[in-house]
């Protein structure tokens, strides 16, 4: 139980930090796409005896790069391409799963198994999460610049291609880490809702990161707690709590000033 709390909180923090970038960049669907696309990778990795996270990472990244490539070479819009690519990969994963005799539990992959997580997986998840968290936090200002104003980033000689790729790799790693905890269906909620909620509440980017993380960790801990006593899926409970917080923010944040941080120096005189 304690372990579940610790891992849940860590995964929530990683996803929350990434969610800020995804939400601001309009990449919410990308999180969905990459997470669904890991399924065939997991099945293939299992079949050939590779570590599952390696397969998951590879096919998640394949989805992202394939989307990028197709978008550059056709006139079809990115979200459309993504919709085709990730559902295709997900379907492929489902077919491979039914054709591969295995001891994998599909529902554990889809919905996670936080309370029944094994120590080895636990360590894996923890290490992966910590690495991703450290890198994203270290590079947060660079990623923020590339998200807010790509042309300024390029004017300073940064490569948008490289930064985008780096963010995608981090996203894929985070999804792999979160798989164990919440599964590939609900990880998208972890990758969108905290950022979206924080966006409603703050006016500075660093604060957005902090608020998103706080919301995500809080929701995760209370979600696990509820699920334990209600005997319901922990992933579902976590997502439910997050959604509730989002609705609350939606109702109370704008204009009301309930949580909105208006610096006292702000006034309406202009020079």
């Amino acid at each position: 139980m304690l372990q579940a709390f610790a891992v849940g909180a860590l995964v929530a923090a990683v996803c929350a930090v990434l969610s800020c970038f995804l939400v601001l960049r309009g990449w919410s669907l990308m999180g969905d796409a990459v997470s669904h696309a890991v399924l065939p990778g997991i099945v293939v990795a299992y079949a050939v005896g590779l570590p599952l996270p390696v397969g998951a990472f590879a096919s998640g990244l394949l989805c992202a790069t394939a989307t990028g490539w197709i978008k550059r070479h056709t006139r079809v819009k990115e979200d459309t391409v993504m919709g085709v690519v990730f559902t295709g990969l997900f379907a492929l994963g489902l077919v491979l799963y039914t054709k591969t005799p295995s001891e994998l539990h599909l529902d554990h992959i889809l919905f996670g198994n936080l309370l029944g997580i094994e120590p080895a997986q636990l360590r894996q998840t923890a290490v992966l999460s910590l690495i991703v968290l450290a890198v994203v936090i270290a590079l947060r200002r660079t990623f923020m610049l590339a998200t807010f104003d790509p042309s300024q980033a390029r004017a300073l000689g940064f490569s948008i291609r490289k930064l985008d790729t780096a963010l995608l790799v981090l996203l894929a790693l985070a999804i792999v880490a979160a798989l164990q905890a919440v599964g590939i269906i609900l990880v998208i909620a972890m990758l969108v809702t905290p950022g979206a909620t924080a966006f409603l509440l703050v006016r500075s980017f660093d604060r957005m990161l902090v608020v998103a993380t706080a919301i995500a960790v809080g929701s995760t801990l209370s979600g696990i707690y509820v699920s334990y006593f209600a005997n319901a899926s922990s992933a579902a409970c976590i997502v439910l709590v997050q959604a509730t917080v989002f609705v609350a923010a939606l109702c109370f944040a704008p204009g009301k000033g309930l949580l909105r941080s208006v610096p006292p120096t702000t006034n309406f005189t202009e020079n």
Binding site: L24, M144, T147, F148, F199, V202, R203, S204, F205, M208
Partner: peptide
């Protein structure tokens, strides 16, 4: 530019 971006 995304004018809703949380930057000052």
């Amino acid at each position: 530019v995304d004018w809703t971006f949380p930057v000052s």
